[in-house]
């Protein structure tokens, strides 16, 4: 059930938390979601290492409507090269006003997923594209 109509709800949720409780709470929301909701994913990354990380993101983005993503496995890292970000595609489609901090959830959550599973996380972004890199420590 990968319904594109949920993307505006994700953004509305971020905006609601930021405007009612402040940006620090928004970052805490992202961190705690990564720690709690994605705890099974952290466990999978911890036990399965880079192979599990590559598989997870391939399967995850395969389900996302309009995503164009290459997942590249190298010796000590996995690069998730998001050439067309489905969230930005659909938020633009629905004419949503996208705040500057929208992408900040990626390094915040990615760092939790990586560090809790014994990896390092790097992030690059620009204009509806981004790269997440999980590096074996």
């Amino acid at each position: 059930m990968a319904f594109e109509g949920f993307y505006p709800a994700i953004l509305a949720t971020f905006r609601h938390i930021e405007s009612n409780y402040g940006y620090d709470t928004l970052e805490r929301y992202w961190r705690e979601m990564a720690e709690e909701y994605y705890a099974p994913v952290i466990e999978k990354f911890k036990t399965g290492g880079l192979g599990a990380i590559a598989r997870h993101w391939r399967e995850y983005f395969d389900k996302e409507p309009k995503a164009q993503v290459d997942v590249i496995r190298e010796q000590n890292r996995v690069i998730i090269d998001v050439k067309q970000c489905p969230a930005i595609y659909w938020l633009r489609h629905f004419k949503c006003d996208i705040p500057d901090w929208y992408y900040n959830h990626i390094p915040v959550m990615g760092t939790v997923l990586a560090e809790r599973s014994g990896h390092k996380f790097e992030f690059e972004s620009g204009d509806g594209k981004y790269k997440m890199i999980f590096i074996k420590e």
């Binding site: 993307y7 709800a9 994700i10 009612n20 709470t25 929301y29 979601m33 995850y60 409507p65």
Partner: peptide
């Protein structure tokens, strides 16, 4: 990073995040 294929799961988690931090009225 956050997609829609597992949105329902973390939407439900979000309800609990708001409830435990700010209460049912804020939810």
């Amino acid at each position: 990073m956050l997609g829609v294929n597992d949105f329902i799961g973390y939407y439900d988690w979000t309800f609990e995040f708001i409830r435990r931090n700010f209460g049912e009225d804020d939810l």
